[in-house]
Design a protein around this nucleic acid. Structure first.
Lengths: 340, 340
DNA sequence: CTGTTAGCGCCTTCAT
DNA sequence: ATGAAGGCGCTAACAG
């Protein structure tokens, strides 16, 4: 029923080797022969077996997408972009989520599930421990990181430190002096983690301006609920806060919710800035440092494909972030604060 | 370097056949032998080649996830749920996006890319033409639909008609008499498309109550920008509209934006209800018919795995939707309308 | 430019 | 319960 390469070979009156070469566009095949083979393959509805091709060639035309989540803005957009770039080159995208649940620390990335199954690996937004990177490298295949690099690895992303500094600068320029930071999980401590770098940028910009940062950083889950909880904790401690820089738009929205919970107006009482450029940020008029996640996915996938063919690629591609002022920031007012 | 089954066989002092049986948990292997084989495999760091296994067995332990997008609430959550359910059973998830871009009609689903590559197919939120379903069935593999069924196919989803009716009933009960509907693309016309069924439910509930529907339906893209544009078009035509039922939360958020654009308050001037239970709906206090997309993904994946093993599964699994009142609905006020 | 011939690494009868 | 051996369908030398 399902025709194989031998059927095509017979129908075209050539050997299977020629069929293989003709169909894959390899050189050393007459245009006429190639055409004849193509026609025969078409008529028989021939589709090569990927397993057989992989087994024989050692290549899978598949890349592994490693990510903690897919249902988050940055991740979904990177994955969508990457998958489409891969599809154009007839590569398949295998999805591996290493769930970072709120309950427990994620399980370690296990390279065995990828072994002999992919030609390359794209790590999306997952800051890996040094030894995890090492075991991934042990696969002997190209590795590209998006949205969370690793030392010495090819990466695509934004300048998290500069992004954070720009956001904080915007708030400080408005006159704010108590600028808090809603950051990620407390156990997210790797120096190359975006959350850590954004916190670092926040601290650096404050320091550069002689503003305090001590006691103004709160940690929590990297989503709406996390941002909301963190902000409540922050305001309990520091009701004198007049501005919040959140490490993602999702957390920033949580911050807005928390402020609303407490009857505080944005930006009347407290200004808020996020990072991402989430489509829905427009609703709340959320000011943000926007980035293009989709294109980062496309770029990372393309680089990975280049590496697979042995072509040289830059060690790092840095995407720009741009301040989009949608109104959630304003000069501080002289709110009466009961206590600190 | 990479050890094969023969290495394990030699190390364990058995044949490759026994290794294969032992490692896959097949019967007819002494507990002692199995243990010895396991230990040998462990020590050698043996990982079977999926290509070789597929070629020999005809099974791939991979399922194909067909979806128009991943960066949309429903899709991202279903995919995330499905991938995790598959991973538990050591199945891989291959991602295939058939981009429904706003510019042009999507390309038809091409089963060839799936041929000999997957053991089953999960179609996520993509209403397929009858003949597309037929060609997919031609793969001879189990097929499950989530969030957009197809006649005679196994499906997981919600009761779209009832969901829409419930939403409209809520608005009508509040006293609204001009209840508009923000629907999906105009060329999304398959009777089993969620958008079509929701519109149908909206119309049915209005009819049941003797309320008009003519001229109150607008079509557009299934996202925030689409909902916003549609709502503007609607209000241009029918400024007397006091309530809007949008076919998704994303579009409902667009509707809220449009209303805000025109200086109308929600729910003061116009009430809005969406569908999904989007995490961010809470911000705008968006009332919605909530559904659990993640669990639909888990269920669909589990059913597909059952079908692969030949187990019987129900023809349809219907998930509940529940009205979550977050405040974007209220009784209509007597707004002065200049003209209709 | 094309054909021949070994494998690729595992699964699966069929014996034993 | 275990072993022997023939594929699975294709690619990649190597000839010619």
């Amino acid at each position: 029923m399902a025709h194989g390469i031998v059927d095509v070979a017979r129908a075209a009156g050539v050997s299977t080797a020629t069929v293989s070469r003709a169909l894959r566009g390899l050189p050393n095949v007459t245009a006429a022969t190639r055409e004849r083979v193509r026609r025969a393959a078409d008529e028989l509805g021939y589709v090569p077996s990927p397993s057989a091709a992989s087994l024989a060639s050692g290549r899978t035309r598949t890349i592994g997408l490693i990510t903690p989540w897919v249902a988050h803005w940055f991740f979904a957009n990177v994955i969508e972009g990457a998958e489409r770039a891969l599809r154009v080159e007839d590569f398949d995208a295998l999805l591996y989520t290493f769930d970072v649940t709120r309950e427990r620390r994620r399980r370690r990335v296990d390279p065995d599930v990828l072994r002999r199954r992919v030609d390359g690996v794209l790590v999306v937004g997952l800051p890996l421990e040094a030894d995890e990177v090492e075991t991934l490298e042990g696969l002997g295949q190209p590795l590209v990181f998006v949205g969370a690099g690793a030392p010495g690895q090819v990466g695509v992303g934004v300048d998290d430190v500069a992004t954070a500094r720009r956001a904080v600068a915007h708030l400080a320029d408005l006159g704010h002096r108590v600028i808090a930071h809603v950051s990620g999980e407390p156990d997210d401590v790797l120096p190359w983690s975006p959350a850590v770098r954004r916190a670092q940028g926040w601290r650096a910009e404050l320091a550069a301006r002689g503003l305090p940062s001590a006691g103004l950083e709160v940690h929590g889950h990297f989503d709406v609920a996390g941002g909301r909880a963190s902000t409540h904790a922050l305001l309990d401690r520091r009701p004198d806060t007049t501005a919040v820089f959140a490490a993602s738009d999702e957390m920033a929205m949580g911050a807005v919710l928390a402020l609303r919970d407490r009857g505080l107006r944005v930006p009347g009482d407290v200004s808020v800035v996020g990072v991402d450029g989430h489509e829905m940020g427009e609703h709340l008029g959320l000011t943000t440092m926007a980035q293009n996640a989709h294109d980062q996915g496309v770029t990372a996938a393309s680089m990975l494909l280049e590496m697979i063919t042995g072509a040289p690629v830059p060690a790092d591609v840095v995407f720009p972030t741009v301040l989009v002022d949608r109104g959630s920031t304003a000069p501080p007012c002289d709110r009466i604060v009961t206590s600190a």
